[in-house]
Simulated scan of single mutants.
Amino acid sequence: MDENYIPLRLAQLRTKKGISAREMSLSLGQAEDYISDIESKNNTPSMDHFLLICEYLGISPREFFDEENPNPILLHELITELEPLGDQDFDNLLNLLFEGQKKIRE
């Protein structure tokens, strides 16, 4: 992981969430150019601010740094929705998923 990772990942996740850098900065209680400064490598967030950024995005720090997951925000939301499901619900959901994938391939 290099020095560009945090700025690039932040920009990627913020954009996927459909939030402007200014809007996110102000929502975090910072100056309007705070997020832009991080994304342009003019500023580095403190640990406290990094944790607030993750909280704002609705992900954990681990999800932020998970390079294998291009969309941790949606995955986190999906997992949260799946947690209360029972075994039969999981079976039904998996069957729908597999049927949908089969139809896409046809």
Rank of each mutant, 00 (worst) to 15 (best):
M1S: 10
M1A: 08
E3H: 06
E3P: 02
I6K: 04
L10T: 00
A11R: 15
Q12S: 09
Q12I: 02
L13M: 03
T15M: 02
T15K: 10
K16S: 11
K16P: 00
K16C: 06
K16F: 14
K17W: 05
K17H: 08
G18M: 05
G18C: 05
S20K: 01
S20F: 00
S20R: 01
S20N: 00
A21F: 00
R22S: 11
R22W: 02
E23M: 01
M24P: 01
S25A: 08
S25P: 03
S25E: 01
L26H: 01
G29W: 10
A31E: 13
A31N: 11
D33K: 11
D33V: 07
D33Y: 05
Y34K: 04
Y34E: 03
I35A: 03
S36I: 01
D37I: 00
D37R: 14
I38A: 03
I38P: 02
I38R: 00
E39I: 03
S40L: 12
S40M: 10
N43G: 00
N43W: 10
T44I: 07
P45R: 06
S46C: 06
S46D: 08
M47Q: 12
D48V: 13
H49M: 15
F50M: 07
F50R: 06
F50H: 08
F50A: 06
L51V: 15
L51H: 13
L51T: 08
L52Q: 14
L52M: 13
I53S: 11
I53Y: 09
E55N: 15
E55V: 07
Y56E: 00
L57P: 02
G58F: 04
G58K: 00
S60A: 09
P61Y: 02
P61C: 04
F64T: 11
F65C: 05
F65T: 05
D66N: 14
E67W: 02
N69D: 14
N69T: 13
N69H: 03
N69V: 06
P70M: 04
N71P: 08
N71K: 02
I73V: 09
I73M: 04
I73R: 03
L75Y: 09
H76D: 12
E77C: 07
L78Y: 09
L78A: 15
L78W: 07
I79A: 10
I79M: 12
I79N: 05
I79L: 14
I79V: 14
T80R: 12
E81K: 14
E81M: 10
L82K: 07
L82A: 12
P84L: 10
P84G: 10
L85C: 14
G86S: 12
D87Y: 13
D89R: 09
F90T: 05
F90W: 14
F90V: 13
F90M: 12
D91T: 12
N92S: 11
N92F: 10
N92E: 14
N92R: 11
L93Q: 08
N95H: 12
L97W: 10
F98Q: 09
E99H: 07
E99C: 06
E99Y: 08
G100L: 05
Q101H: 07
Q101W: 06
Q101E: 15
K102Y: 07
I104G: 01
I104M: 13
R105S: 05
R105P: 00
R105H: 02
R105D: 01
